[in-house]
Design a protein around this nucleic acid. Structure first.
Length: 197
DNA sequence: TAGGCGATGCTCT
DNA sequence: GAGCATCGCCTAG
């Protein structure tokens, strides 16, 4: 199967605009185990000046990839168990990113099932921790250029249907801001029903 | 179906 | 030493 890479000028660098634009885009992961891919159906924006952003207190060892310029991977470890995958945004030196929260599985479903330990397709990539596990994304993939990398990249996908917005999930600071974007009616979107309308 | 809660270890103060 | 952009399991209804 062919996955056509997205050109830099086809995506916005503004964090909130990018979060919306990434809904519908395909994320491709090639590892020694094989190919897995999914269509992004849910994102969250963490823009400049946002108290909930990992970059709010400046650059650190962990969040360095958020400052590399647009379209780099920022992967971090959370709750002692899971990894979360982000796409950086904004010009070089500005710390901001978009969290990818859910994918609709497209390719490599058997491999995803093995990595996740479940055959429930709906549960393979529904949630940031789950999709990272399904695509075998960990710290080794932090700081990759997502338009040119050979193991992890963004490709053209089927355009999103209606995109809904809501507050973000699992945070306490700036919790009211509507910076979460998802494809309405898509069953692979995570989160409580109340937020998915 | 919804809500509560424990596990787990890294990161920064 | 505290907090954390989560998940899966449990219970109640």
């Amino acid at each position: 199967m062919d996955y056509e890479r997205i050109a830099a000028d086809a995506l916005p660098t503004d964090t909130v605009a990018l979060a919306r634009a990434l809904v519908g885009v395909t994320l491709v992961r090639i590892s020694s185990q094989g190919v897995t891919a999914g269509r992004i159906v849910e994102t969250e924006a963490y823009p400049l000046g946002d108290p909930a952003s990992h970059a709010f207190n400046g650059r650190s060892r962990r969040n360095g990839a958020m400052f590399l310029g647009p379209f780099y991977s920022y992967v971090y470890f959370i709750y002692g168990t899971y990894f979360c995958f982000n796409v950086s945004s904004e010009p070089v030196g500005i710390g901001a990113a978009v969290l990818v929260r859910a994918l609709e599985p497209i390719a490599g479903l058997e491999l995803m099932e093995r990595r996740r330990g479940t055959a429930v397709v709906r549960d393979l990539c529904r949630g940031p921790g789950r999709l990272a596990q399904a695509l075998d994304i960990d710290r080794a993939l932090d700081g990759r250029e997502l338009l040119t990398d050979s193991e992890l990249w963004l490709a053209h996908g089927r355009n999103a249907g209606k995109v809904g917005t809501s507050r973000r999930i699992g945070i306490t600071k700036a919790a009211h801001r509507r910076l979460r974007f998802f494809e309405r009616g898509n069953s692979f979107v995570s989160g409580p029903k109340l937020l998915n309308q």
